[in-house]
Amino acid sequence: MSVNLKLIFLCIFYIISNISVFGQKEDTQNKSQLGIHYFGELGLRPGIEIDYSYYFFQKKKVFDKKYIIQRLAVAPSFASYFYTKQSSNYLVASKLQYQFCTGSNKKFRYSYAQPYLKLGYLRSFYSVPVIEIQADGNFEEKKWRGTNSLVLGSGIDIGGYINKKYDWLFGFEYFVERTEDQLYLHRFVGKLGIQLKLNS
């Protein structure tokens, strides 16, 4: 990994941790969710994503029949997905997400849209034998070889009420990989999963 990449990686984690600390000072309700999602790069390249959303800001408006809640959250996330005959990919990221939630005052149902920005680090490990030619002309197998990338992306989730403990979530995400070999790779992800309401 290049020195620049390491520095940027460290900065990402510094920002993530600090935002979370500041968030804890806010007086908010229903503060966190754990999400588990199918993470399909280009739809069908299989993967899984786990994220933890911490809502550090919330504003609620109540009308006659419905209410509207707007919330901001930081969501550290981890995703793992696979390219057939090529690589296993591990993405550590942080999302800054805005949630627009609307629900009925009479029924306990609600739904929301949740756009977000994402910044992260991606490590890919080759899942095939990696061989390197040596100075003497012999070939030697190398372990744990792969590529590093910085990731910047955005997406939108649509979610809603299932029961007191869970929400459903469906989403679409785009991110760009800035790789060590100076490529910008475009990635499109479809997501489907559930959100576990931790303190409901």
């Binding site: 080759y126 095939v128 034998p129 990696v130 061989i131 030619i133 070889r145």
Partner: peptide, 12 residues
């Protein structure tokens, strides 16, 4: 069917 990555002079 066999897949490899061969590293030669920095290229994979």
């Amino acid at each position: 069917r066999q897949d490899y990555r061969l590293i030669i002079e920095g290229a994979e």
